[in-house]
Design a protein around this nucleic acid. Sequence first.
RNA 1: CGGGGAGUGGCGCAGUCUGGUAGCGCACCCGGCUGGGGGCCGGGCGGUCGCAGGUUCAAAUCCUGUCUCCCCGACCA
Length: 561
Amino acid sequence: MRRSVLFLPTERQPPADAEALSHKLMVRAGLVRQLGAGLWSWLPAGWRVHEKVVQIIREEIDGIGGQELLLPVMHPRELWRKTGRDQIDELFTLEDRKGSEMVLAMTHEEAVTFHVAAAVKSYRDLPKTLYHFQVKERDEARPRAGILRTREFIMKDSYSFDRDEAGLDVQYEAHRGAYARIYARTGLEWFECQSDVGMMGGTVAHEYMAPCPAGEDDVVLAPGYAANLEVASADAQPVELPDDTALTEVATPGATTIDALSAALGLPAGALLKAYPVVAADDGRLVLVVVRGDHRVQGVKLQNALRSTFRPATPEEITAQIGPPGSIGPHEPLTAVEVLYDAAVADGPYVVGANRPDAHLRGFVVPEDAPRADVRAVEPGDTIGGETVRIVPAIEIGNIFKLGTRYSEPLGATFLDQDGRPQTIVMGSYGIGPARIAAAAVEQFADEKGISWPVAIAPWTVNLVSLGQGGTPERAAADALYEELRAAGVEVLYDDRDTGNGEKFAEAELLGCPLRLTLGKRSLDSGTIEAQRRRGLEDIDGGIPLEGAVEAVLGIIPTLA
RNA sequence: CGGGGAGUGGCGCAGUCUGGUAGCGCACCCGGCUGGGGGCCGGGCGGUCGCAGGUUCAAAUCCUGUCUCCCCGACCA
């Protein structure tokens, strides 16, 4: 591609309202442009990146037997009513001119299962894996960070259909393998993480996370361990407890926070217990959740432990059922309130609220038969297998779910087994967002000069910069090299503009193609073309010879990151 | 949804408090110089100041309403 004809609107300054690095750089480099909140257009160079990612995914999903198709974005609402998902807040809804209710698909379980339900009759028709690359529409409460969280985006979603759980296990493992190969090929740093299945999900889920500062999630890492903070478990740092032998009330005027209490009593926060009253949404029961003073409740873990969503209890509810907020604790007379202890809480003795104003109790010992569950967030300093965990922000770049019969059941996707008995199809679903892979690559490899694409997803492999102006011998040489590289199948962006050299260099570094070739008058004089790897701005020693340049480039390409 | 902020040429901004001919840098166009790191000089094009209504002799500026966008949080089948 000749730069002189390419639609690549670059900017010297990032948009004023951009925060995330990938947002700033992708806009500056002319890869993407915003149309509205969470609505982004892909310009030619950016779309090349997107489609490079798409092709890698396509090859690997085809490689495990996936069959590509294409499902609509607009669906009859009735279909979503059957699975109950028409009530989701993020679902865009509309009416056509006849007043028929429609929705814009946020994923495609309903649509694909609709067709499978109609077409699959026999166990002989299974298993199947179907997939597509299609637009997803989600009315996000808050789109953010450029293309990291948008309201409309393309997702590769595949769906597996099996006779039984064992079949699902096979397909699930096949996808795990394909995903590992996909992410490895993109050149990203990534982790496969245990993840939450969600309230509507099946039994098992993994998500694929790319660590980077703009990440919305936190990943807990230890040797051989990676999990979303929402589900992660680790061993808490030990705490030295006081040797109180009896339950004793102590006055703690004004000390209603862990910090204040810790200071007032001269005890570490971990020697106190924090009581967190919540109300379960399903039956309205109040549960007093108790964690160590130096720990925090993790919402998703607690939700899973309660088997219900929940909300914090109001001060009125706390006062009426337990005691004054700030001094509540898990002891008599609390028999009317359900207490749930975090698994990291030891036997004691701890300091707890006395359920009276300005008073706490020392020497509290957790009852032997008290219910426990791991509901706390992993903290820095926790260990797994004796190794201290790392907690890093990350972007979710894919996820896979064992769905079971969550969709096949309500949509009537059944088949007749060998004995002629109807069975419900067992499903899995598997998503990847190519745009997020692109953004994660920008985040992970950018430097102060700009983007540094992994070669596998770079818009062009080579950026050939001609320093000569039109009509000069060096320009003619660059023209010739450009044609030779193209003929050899090299993807090359050729900066053939009559503009300042500094501008060309700066733009090449901003755009981030893995290999830059510089051909100017010096090159003709010396017989060598300067070559520089974008990653680390590392010059290739001695450059490459003007004669036989194509062969030299072909030799360098496999060594690019 | 709660909190905070912003809408002035393609981008980044000043001007608004204190009403009085809409400005700057970059980009763009023309000419010249330059020619290995966003170069220099000169001359230009381009904006009904988000929108609507109001106050006023006069509104980017004051008032009312409204739309849009961004950030933090909640949320993110």
